[in-house]
Design a protein around this nucleic acid. Structure first.
Lengths: 221, 221
DNA sequence: ACCGAGGGCGACCAACGGACGGTGCCCAA
DNA sequence: TTGGGCACCGTCCGTTGGTCGCCCTCGGT
């Protein structure tokens, strides 16, 4: 599956540049280290606990519907959310940031320039319970492609929908057009984000930075 | 002594603006709460420990000589350091930041735009043992005045030296010209820092931001 | 020789950016 | 009706920005 999605994205890139991504890239920069490798037998890392105490009932909200790959303009059916909605969440975060900034200035406090923990907290307290940090960080680079080259972003969505790929595969594929854009901009991915009015409030994802670095290294061996 | 230094700085300000600072400002925004106020009897805050273990000997470096108020160009005599040297430390930090940035870019890592913990660590590891975070943060606003209005900064130094004031008093006095500059710039102290090539790598000190906020509040009651 | 004022900076802390992976949902069979 | 693959997001972690105040130093007596 990894290899398949890698092939796909190489395909996507073909008409905009010449480089080969397969054989490094995603595979070289694991984002979860899906290899079990070897169970480090004596590790004492405590388990993350979710299971609620018996008798204690926290009235827990059901989780949001998962995203599916949708074309631009297409509404997701059933218990799913579409990608237009995903991108709208980023716009909502931008609005919440503006509010946090206004409040901070009013009170003479430090004024954030990025979407910080404080902004997520503000969003949650103001009813946007469906926004949370891990989710937003997970798809930042997808939103970045949407902002920087909506044509290519739309094309990718249609392609992946047509093929019946899942969200994970589409998400992976979004990296490669971005790396190509970075190449065309002297590998300054930070600058690319900062120059875009909507993107500049988001941190550059670690993995995107790493992918750019790896590709650049391959260029001048 | 607080009141004395407040009087002094009001005096300094007289030919550049009209506002009264006394009665709020420093006294309203304690930077250490020099008042004993009342000993919170039952507080359990643990004591900070310095005393080395008996028998354990860490070869501890002697602390740096304290700063004294010197005129521009004047070398401190005896076991003291002058203010030109203090300001030079800020320039050194700027150089260390440039190095950290170069290394980060080379390795494709996050690239700091400000003097961060990482920069202080880098400085220390590269022999600048005399640089440390609390010291640099303590005098940032003094350096800011030096960068933004060297004339006024020099004037203040000469005045305070002449009067035999100690470093603490001079340091306090540095706030007020900065507040005046902020007023002339629509209270955008963040922007004032960011627009100055040397200053923009330093965080705006909390207390300076608070002073600006308080003065602005008094303007439109 | 001693003392008190002054201030340098080690060490602390809440909160941060960042990441992982358990849990529960959903769909295909 | 069941099973397994997927992904949402609670929760953790190393480090940060920010600060406090202990204790050393040194000039005055």
């Amino acid at each position: 599956m990894n290899i398949a999605s890698c092939k796909d994205s190489t395909l996507i890139l073909q008409n905009s540049n010449q480089a080969q991504f397969c054989g490094s890239g995603l595979i070289g920069v694991p984002e979860h280290s899906s290899e079990s490798d070897e169970r480090k037998a004596d590790t004492n890392k405590q388990k993350r606990r979710r299971s609620k105490e018996p008798g204690e009932d926290g009235e827990d909200r059901p989780r949001e519907h998962p995203f599916i790959v949708t074309e631009p303009g297409e509404l997701a059916r059933g218990k799913k959310n579409g990608l237009d909605y995903l991108f709208d969440l980023y716009e909502q975060c931008g609005k919440f940031l503006l509010e946090v900034q206004r409040i901070a200035k009013e009170k003479g406090e430090k004024c954030p320039t990025k979407v910080t923990n404080q902004v997520f907290r503000h969003a949650k307290h103001n009813g946007a319970v469906y926004i949370n940090k891990p989710k937003m960080r997970h798809y930042v680079h997808c939103y970045a492609l949407h902002c920087l080259d909506s044509e290519q972003s739309n094309h990718l969505r249609r392609l992946y929908k047509e093929r019946g790929e899942n969200v994970g595969a589409w998400r992976q594929a979004c990296y490669y057009p971005l790396v190509a854009i970075a190449r065309e901009n002297n590998w300054d991915i930070e600058g690319i984000f900062n120059r875009n009015e909507k993107l500049k409030i988001w941190y550059v994802p670690t993995k995107l930075r790493q992918l750019c670095h790896m590709e650049r290294s391959k260029e001048c061996p």
